[in-house]
Each structure stands twice: as C-alpha cells, then as structure tokens.
Amino acid sequence: MATQHSKSAARFMISPAVLLLLGWMLIPLSLTLYFSFLRYNLLMPGTEEWAGFLNYRFFLTDPAFFDAIWNTLLLVGGVLVITIVGGVLLALLLDQPFWGQGIVRILVIAPFFVMPTVSALVWKNMFMNPVNGLFAFLAKAVGLEPFDFLAHAPLSSIILIVAWGWLPFATLILLTALQSLDSEQLEAAEMDGASWLSRFFYIMLPHLSRAITVVILIQTIFLLSVFAEILVTTNGGPGTATTNLTFLVYAQSLLQFDVGAGSAGGVVAIILANIVAIFLMRMIGKNLDA
C-alpha cells in the first residue's frame, strides 16, 4: 500500500512539524551555548567578548549553585516521595467499590487543573500565613504557636504546594494501571490464603512498577523546571533557601542581566534534564515496539 507516491506525500505532511521543532531546538540551543562562552551583560551592550570557560567557572563555583542543586534534588525527591506513596494509597482506595466514586474521583483530580500561580498564592496566603492563615487558626485552636511556614520551612512548604498539584496526576495514572490488573489473579491468591499485605507486595506492586516508573520520570522532567510556585511565594529566598536551578538561571540572567553566566547555567540544566530524559525515552520507546 505504501507506494513511492504515498511515501513522498507522507514526508511532505510531516515536514512542517519537523522543521518547526528543529528550528525551536537548534536556534535557541546554539545561541545558549554560544552566549555561555561570552562575557555578556545586558546592562553593558556592545562589550561582549570571548570569555572561554569563565562563565562556567563562575557559575559552577558560586555557592548559590550548590544550594540550587541541593534544593532542586530535595524539591524533586520530596515531591516524588509524597506523590508516589500518596498516589499508590489513593489509587488503592479509589479502586474499592463505594458510593459516589465518580464524584470523589473528580474531587481528587481537581488540583491538577489549578494553575501554579493560583495554587501557590492560595496556599501561601490563605493556609500558611502565620497571622490570617487557616493553619495558624488551627494551631491556635489547639493551643500551639502559629508556625510561619514560608519563613521557617520554606522549601518544605513549596514541596507541599507542588506535591498537592501533582498528587492527582500520580493517582490517576496508578489507578488506571491498577484497574488493568486481572482480578482473577488476586482472587486466586486470596483463596490460596495470601494475606492482603502479601497480595499487595507480590501482585499489585509488581504490576504497578511500570506505571510508577513512568510517573517518576515524567514528573521529574516537569519538577526540574518548577518556577512559578517559587516566584510568587518566596522569590527564591530567604537567602537561597528555595532557589532551584531553574530559578537561579532566571535570577542570573533576567534579574542580574548576566547573560553569559545565565547561559552557562542553562547548559548545566539541559545536561541534568537529559540524564533523566534518556531513561524516560527508553521506557516509552519500548512501549512503541510492543
């Protein structure tokens, strides 16, 4: 069926998408790479000169860089742990028969559709504010001192906010995977006297492992780039307590106007993301063959 004619037609149909993405990748990437070797400050236009690896040395030896790497890892790791553990538990719960399943499902999924700036500001002001927040009220109601979340536990607070938004994603995917589990297998195990725990660890969890891997990889790609939640809550502070790699590059280039160092940071971010991406691509590629 695939004649020479239809093949060239296919190539013609595919080319706009390929060309657009090629341009989108190559032009900015090569510019970032180029800038990263320049002494280039937006406040001093016209003074650009070759700087060799100076920007990399500057960026990679900046103490803020290590803070940012550490914060990035904590942020990604913290959100992953909360969403995976919470997601598995929620998926197990929602998989049980109960009244109003459809509605509860909708309630659980809803946070995923809340834009990051809204969720961050709602949490920051209406829940975590030490004077007027709901948490402060609850603390006072049981006789505790209100806790200033974003001042004393800034990164944990942001992890909580981001995890709230991603929990539905993990839940939904794990629930979908759980529902494809053959219930006869579980019944057989139950009849053979397997306890709930051993059914969970030997049947359900192995069945879910693939979905869990997918959740981890996809979320990591997005979580490496968390930005809005930090911008509107702490602006990276106090100090560098909540500055992740994305935010550091943003601050370096668009707040301090140091395009050279910012670009070097961008290149580092690309390399980090690629390490994760390789694993994700392998998983998805395998699925394509099947």
Partner: peptide
C-alpha cells in the same frame, strides 16, 4: 524536544 528544560533556552 519536550525534555528540553525551558530555562535552557530562556535567554535566546
């Protein structure tokens, strides 16, 4: 291309 972190191409 979707795996490209946005911050890597922000400046250009």
């Amino acid at each position: 291309t979707k795996m490209l972190p946005p911050v890597g191409v922000l400046i250009p």
